[in-house]
Design a protein around this nucleic acid. Structure first.
Lengths: 209, 209
DNA sequence: CTCAATAAGTGCAACAGTACAACTTTTGAA
DNA sequence: TTCAAAAGTTGTACTGTTGCACTTATTGAG
């Protein structure tokens, strides 16, 4: 997702307290911004690491201290997103089921990302879709998120960690928004999908608070 | 899969007719063998391309003419396997259902690979499992195979190319053997899984010859 | 049989992504 | 002020991968 330095308060990143950490975050952001700009201008494969580092006015070593591999420059907010996703399940209000929490999360984040920067976002999506390296990387990210989510679901629901139901719910919860984006009315699609899921689910696991 | 140059007649590769093509195949095999040996001896990341090329007595350029990327050295027989898989569906005997053909294929290839070289095979599996680059690559291979299989299923069954049923069957057919390998009695597991599948399937698509 | 087209293979230099190590500057706190 | 840790820098080198110019072997057609 393109990040324009100013992002709404949709998660656990509102408090970079120390002067140090703020500077660090700033550097990181400068790198990510420069990278994304160059990538969108000229294509992922046409822009080298050294050039990005130059554009952000840091050394390549510094760049790699912030982003472990080139692809990570594009999926900057990856870990933040994952953290928010897991938090949405872990810290859901009392009495709300896990699927309901997931639906809620899917809806809010979809609104947030799709809102202000629809043009940028389309360009970004296109970049990823047309660059094989990025497609692969995104796919693996997706799998990692699904796995992490499955573990959290297992913890929260009290099911066995390797219960297929957890994996299935996780997969579904991540797949639904993906599928919905090709729909004419994404929000409606998400709601429907999750409604269906919840009923199937409640038969399986009634043990969540 | 480890390939010991002498492999049973389990597929469509028995006729490298021209002198030229035979030499080419020999070179390829020499490279793959050298690579696999070195990888198993010292680990994937500890062996460089140049060293492999030396061991097979070819130049790195030649090596890359046979294998597009380093990982492909390990999954040498990838495309052969995929071809056999698709052929198993396309050229199934008259009157045999698609799931039945897939079950058959799963059983025979499992026997073939698991038979003589169980030690080698375990080492190979371990190599892949412990090397992230290879795990990722294998995962993508799996997805590509599943997609290809789904297309063939669509053709053969007359269903729409993007019918989820095709994708689901393809996924299942490839997943079952994977899951079965952790089972105590793999063959039994495969048979059961496919039996179950066939009944679910026959309700959905009765239109295959 | 000859010959030109084609494919396989060679050697080398270059580039891009990444790692590493030794060093300098900031910065948080005592 | 002082100091140790963290952030950043520089330079260097390794590894996968590609491009280029070139040699050699195979082959199909005349």
């Amino acid at each position: 997702m393109p990040s324009t330095t100013t992002h709404a308060a949709t998660g656990p990143a509102p408090a970079p307290v120390g002067r140090r950490e703020r500077k660090k975050a700033a550097t990181r952001q400068a790198i990510a911004d420069a990278a994304l700009r160059l990538f969108l201008e000229r294509g992922y494969d046409e822009v080298g690491i050294r050039e990005i580092a130059d554009a952000a006015d840091v050394s390549t070593t510094t760049l790699f201290k912030h982003f472990p591999v080139k692809e990570a420059l594009v999926f900057d907010e990856d870990s933040d997103q994952e953290a928010r996703l897991l938090a949405a399940v872990r810290e859901r209000p009392e009495g709300r089921s896990i699927p309901a929490a997931l639906r809620e999360h899917a809806l809010t984040t979809r609104l947030a990302t799709g809102a202000a920067e629809d043009g940028d976002f389309a360009a970004f999506a296109n970049l990823v879709a047309t660059t094989p390296a990025l497609r692969d990387y995104a796919q693996n990210m997706w799998l990692r998120h699904a796995a992490a989510l499955a573990r959290v679901i297992a913890e929260e629901s009290g099911l066995a960690a390797d219960d297929p139901v957890c994996a299935a719910l996780a997969h579904f919860a991540l797949e639904a928004p993906r599928a919905a984006s090709t729909h004419d009315n994404p929000r409606q699609a998400i709601v429907r999908a999750f409604d269906l899921l919840e009923h199937g689910w409640s038969g399986h696991a009634q043990a969540d608070a």
